[in-house]
């Protein structure tokens, strides 16, 4: 390391370690750090015009959350719409886009990428159907699963209109995007947003008046997935094409 003497480095390392230890200690104590669920209302914004389909978000999610190989908490779809045939788009999502996509040659079709994840619905159909209260909406607006309580009946998987839930093959409980609850409650962003090179996906705190999400929603054409489902989705897409399902 040319730029930093080892000594300097380890001073910094020490500082980081102390910081992280302090954070861990705060988490472990009965009264967790200043984070208060009442002050937040989480969601996400996705800018279709920025998504390059690199798949780093899907790969990062898998690495961060140990997502099993054959299932996905977030994935990317590539759409191709021929002319006015927006009812029958061609869609693909090999490995959920974790390894990226094979380049698409120029053609007459309109094509674009759409990242998908749990919509953290405000009136969530999956929470509604859970028979035991093992999936729920946290006070700060994140739909979570209680792994130690889920019976694995799969009703929630059936009830999700977006296909974002699955049964974890080893744990045999419902699994889904937690909006990186373990990260966002410590002031970090989600793993997918961290890994996104273009800022196409951004964590949004709708209760924070200074969050750019308000400007984003005000100044852009916004749509949610399957609005007819009236689930109160909190993942807001900018310039979402009508062909997207």
């Amino acid at each position: 390391m040319k730029d930093l003497s080892r000594r300097q480095l380890f001073e910094k390392a020490g500082r980081f370690l102390i910081l992280s230890n302090a954070a861990a200690a705060a988490l472990n104590s009965a009264e967790p750090n200043p984070y208060s669920t009442a002050d937040h209302w989480w969601g996400m914004t996705i800018d279709i015009d920025q998504c390059i389909g690199c798949g780093n978000c899907a790969a990062a999610c898998q690495a961060e959350n140990k997502v099993p190989e054959e299932f996905h908490r977030t994935w990317i779809e590539r759409y191709q719409v021929q002319g006015d045939d927006y009812q029958h788009p061609q869609v693909e999502s090999p490995h959920g886009g974790r390894e990226g996509f094979t380049p698409l040659p120029e053609s007459a079709a309109k094509s674009f990428y759409v990242p998908k994840l749990c919509n953290h619905c405000a009136t969530s159909p999956c929470v509604q159907v859970c028979p035991v209260g093992a999936t729920f909406e946290s006070p700060d607006g994140v739909v979570l699963v209680d792994e130690s309580y889920c019976v694995g009946c799969r009703y929630c998987v059936q009830a999700c209109p977006y296909g974002t839930r699955f049964i974890h093959p080893e744990k045999q409980v419902a699994d889904k995007c937690t909006l990186c609850y373990h990260r966002i409650t410590q002031g970090l962003t989600t793993a997918c947003a961290e890994a996104c090179p273009t800022g196409a996906r951004k964590l949004a705190d709708l209760k924070d008046p200074k969050d750019p999400v308000h400007e984003f929603l005000r100044t852009n054409t916004i749509q949610v997935l399957k609005p007819q489902m009236a689930t109160g989705s909190k993942v807001y897409y900018k310039n979402l094409d009508g062909a997207v399902r």
Partner: peptide, 21 residues
Amino acid sequence: HLGHPERSFEMYLTPHRSSAM
């Protein structure tokens, strides 16, 4: 069929009123 049959009694313990199941 349940992933965790041993937890099925939870349906009697904490039945979720909004759930048809």
